[in-house]
Amino acid sequence: MTDTQWPVWEVFVQANPGIPHKHAGSVHAPDAEMALQNARDVYSRRSEGMNIWVVPANAITASSPEDQGSFFEPSNDKPYRHPTFYKIPEGVKYL
């Protein structure tokens, strides 16, 4: 058997109730349960978290830098998606 440092898992921590999980870093672990425990031991030493997700790093598919133009620029010319696009006369409330 070849010795390794175990596969990499990405760790996402929810710092407070009601807010999204945020990427905290990664840990090495042989399986999901140990990944969860290692994530707890590494990333919540200063009460940073209340919930943790661990995901095998190789299960994550990321968009590539070359995709940036075709993925994200098309939304730049759609200012009508933003509320500031619309002029509302002063005095009109609750809009």
Binding site: M1, D3, T4, Q5, W6, P30, D31, M34
Partner: peptide, 15 residues
């Protein structure tokens, strides 16, 4: 630590 790391991998593989 080698045998420890290997044991954990073997256990995971069995599961």
């Amino acid at each position: 630590g080698k045998w420890v790391r290997e044991a954990a991998v073997a256990y995971a593989a069995k599961r």
